[in-house]
């Protein structure tokens, strides 16, 4: 999976939305991102997978919202004023919300800024360097995959 992604980014630069989850900074490929919304009421769905917080009404559409923290075995989310839901859109399967603690900025990374990693965890496909900060890059497809 990481390999396929590698080929597509070979030459060009890519934009990432930098978010904070816990103490770490993560980058989400901007081409997947449909929208960023403030925290709103999430309706719990009983018996769903534990990492699903529930569903929200996004302008008349029902969108499921997942907790990336639970999926990454981190402590459960604490919603603050800075919490946001990143709405990512994947062909065919539709939209999904991912809760993050904070949205920081949008950065442009070229290939040289990104170090590909495969051993950093299931959801990370690379580490980007921006200034003196390190950004772990999410592999969106792995995150939305069901039985991880």
């Amino acid at each position: 999976m990481a390999k396929a992604a590698l080929e597509t980014v070979e030459k060009e630069t890519k934009q990432y939305i930098v978010v904070k989850v816990g103490n770490e900074q993560y980058g989400i490929d901007i081409s997947y991102v449909d929208n960023i919304v403030r925290m709103q009421k999430i309706t719990r769905v009983p018996k769903a997978q534990n990492y699903f917080k529930g569903i929200i009404n996004l302008r008349g559409e029902i969108v499921p919202v997942m907790s990336i923290r639970i999926k990454m075995d981190l402590p459960d989310d604490v919603f603050t004023n800075a919490s946001r839901i990143i709405i990512v859109k994947i062909e065919e399967k539709g939209s999904m919300g991912i809760i993050v603690d904070q949205v920081k900025e949008v950065v442009t990374l070229s290939r040289d800024d990104i170090e590909r990693v495969t051993n950093k965890g299931r959801f990370i496909n690379g580490i980007g360097t921006h200034g003196d900060e390190l950004i772990s890059l999410f592999e969106i497809n792995a995150i939305i995959e069901e039985n991880v």
Binding site: A48, Q49, I62, P64
Partner: peptide, 10 residues
Amino acid sequence: KSLGKYINNT
């Protein structure tokens, strides 16, 4: 409205 394809619920 459907819950979508992500949530597999009862």
